[in-house]
Computed example of a mutant assay.
Amino acid sequence: MLEEMCRLTSAGVPPAEAARAALEGVDRSPSEHDRPQADRADAARPRSRAPGALPLGDARKECKGLARAAVRLDAPALDDQLTGLVTRHGLVVAWEEVMVPTLHAVGRKWESSGDRYVEVEHLLSWHISRALHRAIAVAVPGAQGVGPVLLACVPGEQHSLPLEALDASLTEMGLPTRMFGAAVPTEALTAAVRRLGPVAVVLWAQARSTADHPLARHVASTSWGVKGARSRPTVLLGGPGWAGRQVPGTLRPQGLSEALATLANLYDSFAAPGESRPAP
């Protein structure tokens, strides 16, 4: 009975509804037939204040199921739910509407509870990273004849998960990338820009303390190629750390969807007449 209730709640069914189903001995998963009743019961019930509940507010039901699995440290349930999310909704919707709200809820709980929820945040982040990597296990061939998108966290920035989501989505679209991850030193970053000649560089800063405006200006002004035909990358600044003062010569997309649209349009401008980038 307990296993059945855990299975139902990890899939997003509200606890009271799952308990009734388990008590009745009904061996079933939350199907399309079950969802309207579960949604009505959940909407009528005040948000849980029980210990361990995450501050999700009116988030999607999938967020609540993911949060329950994370709080229980239920790794198999996390993997199953994340794989299902990406399969049903695609990377962008899964990231923006489920993964990010759940990560934010865990972060808020961590901030208000000392170090009690560190393990929950780390486990959830790890499994989200795994799900993103699995989603692009079979990569679409990248665009030919143009430089890649270079993705890097600024020096001192360890939060690379949003860049992993962007990297996975770009790869799914068939756009070439080079993912360098967390805390890339300034010299290594500028050397990579000169070596690769990227079409675009995405710099991620989660906090204002790590947002390096001089570095962003330097990368935006870095050029390569023969004299008279030198090129510079388009620089996109991602993350809340860049809020406030604008860095001249850079773009600031608001979220994954906008970044993808900007980069797709950029690659389309490099395509030869009659040629288009690979379809997702």
Rank of each mutant, 00 (worst) to 15 (best):
P36H: 04
R217S: 13
L85R: 00
V202N: 03
S113E: 13
G107N: 05
D58Q: 12
V120F: 11
A18C: 07
L189P: 00
R232Q: 14
R60Y: 10
E258P: 07
L260T: 10
A200Y: 05
L82Y: 00
D27M: 08
D79E: 14
L215G: 05
A131K: 00
L170A: 07
R28C: 12
L73P: 03
L161M: 10
M5S: 11
V26Q: 11
A67F: 03
V92K: 04
A200R: 01
V138H: 14
R134G: 13
G174Y: 03
A271E: 11
D268K: 11
R40H: 05
W95S: 02
P280K: 13
R35T: 09
A43I: 09
A191S: 11
R208I: 05
G107Q: 06
A207S: 12
H133P: 03
P51H: 05
P36M: 04
V247S: 09
E119F: 10
A53G: 02
S125Q: 06
G25I: 02
R130E: 13
R208G: 15
Q246W: 10
R35K: 12
V219N: 00
A137M: 06
L163V: 05
L170T: 06
E96A: 11
S269W: 09
P15W: 14
P176G: 04
E187H: 13
D34A: 11
W242C: 10
T9L: 05
A168C: 10
M179Y: 15
V93K: 07
A70G: 08
V98M: 05
P76W: 09
Q37L: 13
R40E: 07
P76A: 05
L256D: 04
G241Y: 01
T250D: 11
A105K: 01
D212E: 11
Q81V: 09
A21C: 15
S221A: 15
S221P: 06
V86K: 00
D39H: 04
R47N: 08
V219P: 00
L2V: 13
E172T: 05
R116V: 13
R134D: 12
V202E: 02
T190V: 12
T171W: 03
L23E: 15
E157A: 08
M173D: 09
S221M: 14
R277V: 12
D79H: 10
S221D: 15
G107K: 09
V106Y: 05
G25F: 00
R72T: 07
K227I: 13
